[in-house]
Simulated scan of single mutants.
Amino acid sequence: MASSHLITKTRIKNLLLIVIGSILYATSVNVFTVPNGLSEGGLTGFSLILFYLVDIPPSYTIFIINIFILAIGYKFLDKKTLQYTLVANAIISVMLLAVTRYQFIPETTLLAPIGSGIFMGAGIGLIMLGHGTTAGSDILAKLLEKYFGINVPTGLLLIDVCIVLPSAFIIGAENVALTLINLYIQSKVIDFVLEGLNPRKSFFIISEKHIEIAEAIENQLGRGITILDGKGYFTKEKKEILYIIISRREVLPIKRIVAALDPNAFMTISHVQEVTGEGFTYLSPEMQAERITEAEEDWLEE
């Protein structure tokens, strides 16, 4: 009974995120993008080109084209994501028809792409948090990967370029430049929504002076460090590897420590999406239960 209650609660939360995200998505298009003659990437951009050319409302083209693409590429989505994506697609289309009362046409040109990017990025981010997608470009990118060997990020970029650049003949070069600003802001806002305020970084450090480096990091920053056993493929020499997860503001101090103690140290820095455990934010019991419930929900739906 408790598990069923949590599953229902999780679904309600996901649907709420998708609804809010869809409202923000529609607000971006109808309040900021269209009134200022801007475009978008992906299928939203394609629908806007049709709107500017033949005055077909974007809500219709987005819904119809996404349904067509989902029919072709549904196998690339798991059952739950497919369901939420269908819901998101329907709600976005409805909201694009509903959110039409207000328009924001600023005197300062840059405010339009900034507003559009913030609202669209937040909308897409919330839809993704709700386990949905905006379909369209995501599925097309996966089709490109399957049949042409193009990885998904590159595929998404190609789709955006193929839509945004030709739109210069319709909306003008200046508005295309503003659209690119919009897309950049979108990507940053999506990252912010999905990853939160405090993204983490991970360090791998290989150095002959790994003990001195570890001691300096522990003494100066108070961070725990894991020492991994490694072995060079070419030299066959065993190496001690330092592995550290830190906050973004600690990146520069660690780089300075390593450079001061061993300028020849091999070091990589990677982005970490989420960290839980000692020294970082613990999940609340409610969040732990929700994570477990989502996993159970996935298992039950398979």
Rank of each mutant, 00 (worst) to 15 (best):
A112F: 11
A112R: 02
P113S: 08
I114G: 05
G115P: 07
G115V: 08
G115C: 09
G117D: 02
I118P: 01
I118Y: 01
F119W: 02
G121D: 01
G121R: 02
G123L: 04
I124N: 02
L126K: 07
I127R: 02
M128F: 14
L129G: 03
L129T: 00
L129N: 14
G130L: 11
G130V: 08
G130Q: 03
G130K: 06
G130C: 08
T133C: 03
T134E: 12
S137K: 07
S137R: 04
I139G: 06
I139E: 10
L140T: 04
K142A: 05
L143W: 04
L144D: 12
F148V: 05
F148D: 07
G149R: 10
I150F: 11
I150L: 12
I150V: 15
I150E: 08
V152T: 10
P153F: 07
G155I: 06
L156N: 05
L157H: 00
I159D: 11
I159L: 15
D160Q: 03
V161P: 05
V161M: 12
C162K: 00
C162Y: 06
V164G: 08
L165G: 06
L165C: 06
P166W: 04
P166M: 05
S167Q: 08
A168E: 11
A168G: 12
F169G: 11
I170F: 13
I171N: 10
A173F: 08
E174Y: 14
E174Q: 14
N175P: 13
V176S: 14
T179V: 12
L180H: 10
N182G: 02
L183W: 04
L183R: 04
I185F: 08
I185H: 06
S187I: 00
S187G: 14
K188F: 10
K188C: 00
V189K: 02
D191E: 11
D191Y: 05
D191T: 04
F192S: 07
V193H: 03
V193S: 00
N198H: 09
N198Q: 13
N198C: 00
R200A: 14
K201A: 11
K201P: 05
S202D: 10
S202I: 12
H210C: 10
I211C: 12
A214W: 06
A216R: 13
I217H: 05
E218G: 13
E218K: 15
Q220S: 13
Q220C: 11
Q220L: 15
R223F: 03
R223N: 01
G224V: 01
T226S: 14
T226F: 14
T226K: 14
I227M: 14
I227P: 02
